[in-house]
Measured scan of single mutants.
Amino acid sequence: RGITCLDHENEKVNMYCVSDDQLICALCKLVGRHRDHQVASLNDR
Rank of each mutant, 00 (worst) to 15 (best):
T4E: 05
E9C: 12
D21L: 01
V18T: 15
L6R: 14
L23T: 10
T4V: 05
N14Q: 14
E9K: 13
I3E: 12
N10F: 01
N43P: 13
C17K: 11
K12M: 11
E11R: 06
L6A: 15
N10E: 01
E11G: 05
C17V: 02
E9G: 11
H37R: 02
C17E: 07
L27I: 02
I24Q: 11
Q22G: 07
Q22A: 12
S19K: 10
S19N: 09
H34C: 03
C5L: 00
N43I: 04
S41W: 02
D20L: 00
S41C: 09
D44P: 10
D7R: 05
T4N: 11
G2E: 14
G2L: 05
I3N: 15
E9A: 14
D44T: 08
D44F: 03
S19T: 12
V18D: 13
L30W: 09
D44S: 09
V31T: 14
D36L: 08
V31K: 14
C28L: 00
H8Q: 02
A26I: 01
E9F: 14
H8I: 00
T4M: 10
E9S: 10
A40D: 12
L6P: 15
V13K: 04
R33W: 03
K29C: 07
Q22I: 04
Q22N: 04
D21G: 11
D36K: 06
E11P: 00
G2T: 10
C17Q: 03
H34Y: 01
D20V: 00
G32D: 03
L27S: 13
D21M: 04
G32R: 01
S41D: 13
E9N: 13
M15W: 14
N14S: 13
R35H: 02
L42P: 03
D7C: 06
L30P: 07
A26L: 04
D44L: 03
R45I: 10
V31P: 12
L27E: 15
C25Y: 00
A26C: 13
K29V: 07
L23G: 12
V18Q: 15
G2W: 03
N43S: 11
S19V: 10
R33N: 08
L23W: 10
K29E: 10
G32K: 04
M15F: 09
I24A: 08
K12Q: 08
C5F: 00
A40H: 04
R45G: 15
D44N: 08
V13R: 09
D44E: 11
H37M: 01
S41T: 11
G32F: 00
V13I: 14
R45F: 15
